[in-house]
């Protein structure tokens, strides 16, 4: 049986890396006593796969991972068992059974929606800046990493920007081929590292089929 688990990550645990989240789930599942299926090979691991990586420090309001069990499990029991052994800040919202042969989460999710909030409210020039950004065809950005720098076109990954009273809402493209960081956009806007204590939340992840948008 395969399950798709929908969860949230709040507070400081949002600072865990993708790899650290992976290990957290592996151990949580072993603690829960659920009959998880194991991978074969030299170094066996519980069979689970996570959705697209979240930037470090970004809270997740509706994240996903898939897990395979080797025996029948009641989904409600699964939710309860997991929530009993999760650290403060991580919580299972829902679980549903999925077909054994479905595609990986990372392969199907193509959009991520973020909300950015500022302690002193949305900057006054946000609307103006967003409109100017969306008008452009490209928005080159130099991404620096320990391995060197690389140019990325931020514009190509932005589906939409909406400025509301309570924050900036961003719809970004994501795929195994690439994605951009919210902090990169905020850097271009002149907010990141300038305004203190910016809070970023990933509100949801979506799959597009034809012209329709679904949750995974």
């Amino acid at each position: 049986m395969k399950f798709r688990i929908n969860y949230e990550v709040k507070g400081t645990l949002a600072f865990l890396s993708h790899l650290e989240m992976m290990r957290l789930w592996q151990r949580a599942i072993l603690r829960s006593g659920l009959p998880v299926a194991w991978s074969n090979g030299f170094n066996p691991r519980p069979k689970l796969s996570l959705g697209p990586a979240r930037g470090v420090g970004i809270e997740g309001c509706s994240e996903y991972f898939d897990v395979e069990c080797k025996a029948k499990v009641d989904p409600e029991e699964l939710v309860k068992k997991l929530n009993d052994i999760l650290p403060e800040g991580i919580f299972i919202l829902a679980v549903r059974e999925i077909p054994q042969s479905g595609k990986m989460l990372e392969a199907i999710i193509d959009e991520a929606v973020y909300k950015v909030t500022f302690p002193q409210g949305v900057p006054a020039d946000a609307k103006e800046k967003a409109a100017a950004f969306l008008k452009e065809k490209t928005a080159p950005f130099i991404r620096k990493s320990p391995k060197g720098s690389k140019e990325v076109d931020l514009r190509a990954f932005v589906n939409g920007i909406e400025i509301k009273e309570d924050g900036i809402y961003l719809s970004l493209k994501t795929s195994p081929a690439g994605s951009i960081r919210v902090t990169e956009l905020l850097t271009v806007f002149g907010y990141w590292d300038i305004i203190k204590d910016i809070r970023i939340q990933r509100l949801g992840l979506f799959v597009t089929v034809g012209t329709k948008r679904f949750t995974p």
Binding site: G11, T12, L13, F15, S17, R27, V56, G57, P87
Partner: peptide
Amino acid sequence: IPVERFLNRVQRPGRYVGREWNI
């Protein structure tokens, strides 16, 4: 101490987040 303020700017924030299972 408002720890989250610093965590965005350090290499391995996992060192400082606490909240391990079994606290």
